[in-house]
Design a protein around this nucleic acid. Structure first.
Length: 505
RNA sequence: GGUGGGUUCGUAUAACGGCUAGUACUCAAGAUUUUCAUUCUUGCAAUAGGAGUUCGAUUCUCCUACCCACUACCA
């Protein structure tokens, strides 16, 4: 039977979506679209204590910014609604009870204190306590208590749980789309809590299996941190009798910090000056984290960068639109090892995308910046400026620093450059050049005034570089920047003369 | 500690068991340019270590080392 491809991204609304999460969503999306399947968004809010207000909206907005649009799920609706796990409470309880009835799970009444005690006791003798076939016989649960006592506790207390009864001595055989065959002895696994009476919610493990089954998910593509719980999930599908339609699994490599070891964290970004979140985030406590969007990255560049972190197309192509990524993507090309995040390469991507944008589009983005600087300029003029500076920039926000002197006269002159160029006969030469320009009656255009200036300098046998730089200093306040012909054409004859005279005077 | 996963230039990665281990970013040098930037050219730089299988190993097997994840009534 050939099922329609259906994958999901299932984040937990415990804070802003990290770029690792965005990549997971992206790979799911690419996989689904490549196979003409569905991409669903499910919110896994089964931990009432870690819920963070605004996180869900943040997730939705982030995906939207990236162009990763869910076909179904929170924000999109669909035939399997609701897609928020906190709204699916009744569904999970039924399956949890079913597992107890079939002998695959049991009730556990151990208090947090007794579990803590068991852990520290084990620790004292250099061991680690795990709630498993080896220890469950010594704990308070429906396996050790009389049926009457169990029933009484079920009725009269409210902090019990349902735990999975991990089978003894099973070698669980698993297949991962990225890692291949993996096997593990069930004796090393613990009896995970599946359902919590205290808040009438399942834990991740149960909710995940039940929803993936009900929502007819065909492939589960998630982070590598889930690989250790894969055997539990296999066993859960089996216990529920769903092994025939069990999804296939793919565990993605982790995103690592740029230097040193370990998982990429928000601290790394703060420390090294790059965002680890797609969008700016202000926590409920008021703590601000920067985002790629607000830092001036184009979503296409951000997505392109993320796609190539842990996956490669098998060709040397590096620039991909989302549509091209869909066509090129395959899980076979996803690497197994963690990828260290590289902020420099991200900038390179943005530079490439900035160059690909039309001058008009970039000019439109630059207009508000000019306005904020108190500059009045027509969009047509700004478009001409942008055409000259876009290959010198990484972000639109670089434009002002690169070309501010096109829009307003310099108020002071770089001392170092002045010392270097504004000396000897140069001021006199510039004065002579000003007189020449004053009398110049050709068009004040780049290809007219530029060659005219050069020709004059050559005819006087002055050193080209020195004189041009002295002129540049007068015009822009600095010894480096755009070509003099471009500057002259852009600011016009009057402004040209005004600036030079001001510098001379 | 236990279990699982991983390991190619600084980084991301390529190389059905077979050329001199390729590409991109970064960095350096040179060329071009009136400066800067761009562009172009060149360069630096890697198979963690050790056994084994093989005519031949980056690739397969084992051991060691290191890294990561998991080991919650968190996801």
């Amino acid at each position: 039977m050939n099922r329609k491809t259906r994958v999901r991204f299932a984040p937990s609304p415990t804070g802003p979506l990290h770029i690792g999460g965005v990549r997971t969503a992206l790979y799911n999306y690419l996989y689904a679209k490549k196979r003409n399947g569905d991409f669903l968004l499910r919110i896994e809010d089964t931990d009432s204590h870690r819920f963070v207000p605004g996180a869900e909206e943040y997730i939705l907005e982030s995906l939207k910014w990236c162009g990763i649009v869910p076909d179904e799920g929170v924000g999109a609706g669909g035939p399997h609604a609701p897609y928020r796990q906190s709204e699916r409470r009744e569904i999970y309880r039924k399956y949890a009870e079913q597992l107890v009835a079939s002998g695959h799970a049991y009730y556990a009444f151990d208090s947090a204190e007794s579990l803590e005690a068991a852990r520290s006791a084990a620790e004292a003798s250099g061991q680690t306590f795990i709630y498993s076939s080896a220890t469950r016989g010594a704990m308070r649960n429906s396996l050790t208590l009389s049926p009457e006592e169990t029933q009484r506790l079920l009725r009269e207390t409210e902090d019990w749980t349902i735990r999975f009864k991990m089978p003894v001595g099973r070698i669980v055989q698993m297949d991962d789309l990225i890692r291949g065959h993996v096997e593990i002895n069930s004796d090393t696994l613990d009896d995970k809590v599946l359902w919590k009476r205290a808040d009438c919610l399942p834990t991740y493990h149960l909710a995940n299996i039940v929803d993936d089954h009900l929502m007819e998910i065909t492939e589960v593509i998630r982070g590598e941190e889930w690989l250790p719980s894969l055997p539990l999930h296999y066993l859960l599908y089996e216990a529920l009798g769903w092994q025939d339609t069990m999804p296939r699994f793919a565990h993605l490599p982790l995103l690592l910090k740029p230097v040193g070891n370990g998982k990429l964290s928000k601290r790394d970004g703060d420390k090294m000056g790059f965002p680890v979140f797609p969008l700016r985030w202000v926590s409920p406590e008021g703590e601000v984290s920067r985002g790629y969007r607000e830092d001036g990255y184009f979503p296409e560049a951000f997505v392109n960068m993320l796609a190539l972190l842990g996956w490669n197309p098998g060709t040397e192509q590096e620039l991909f639109s989302l549509e091209e990524l869909v066509q090129a993507f395959s899980l076979e090309k996803v690497s197994k090892s963690g990828a260290k995040f590289n902020p420099e390469k991200t900038k390179w991507f943005n530079r490439e995308y900035l160059r690909k944008k039309s001058d008009a589009e970039l000019a439109a983005a630059f207009m508000p910046v000019l306005e904020a600087q108190g500059v009045r300029a027509t969009e047509a003029f700004v478009t001409k400026v942008v055409a000259l500076i876009k290959e010198r920039a990484t972000f639109v926000s670089d434009f002002w620093d690169i070309a501010w002197y096109i829009f307003k006269a310099p108020e002071n002159y770089d001392p170092k450059d002045a010392a270097k160029f504004w000396k000897d006969e140069n001021p006199d030469r510039v004065r002579e050049l000003a007189a020449f320009v004053q009398d110049f009656d050709g068009a004040f255009e780049r290809d007219v005034i530029g060659p005219a200036l050069e020709e004059y300098i050559r005819s006087r046998e002055w050193p080209m570089g020195k004189v041009m730089n002295a002129l540049r200093l007068a015009l822009t306040g600095s010894g480096s920047g755009l070509g003099i012909a471009d500057v002259a054409a852009l600011i016009g004859k009057d402004e040209f003369l005004a600036r030079v005279n001001r510098c001379l005077g």
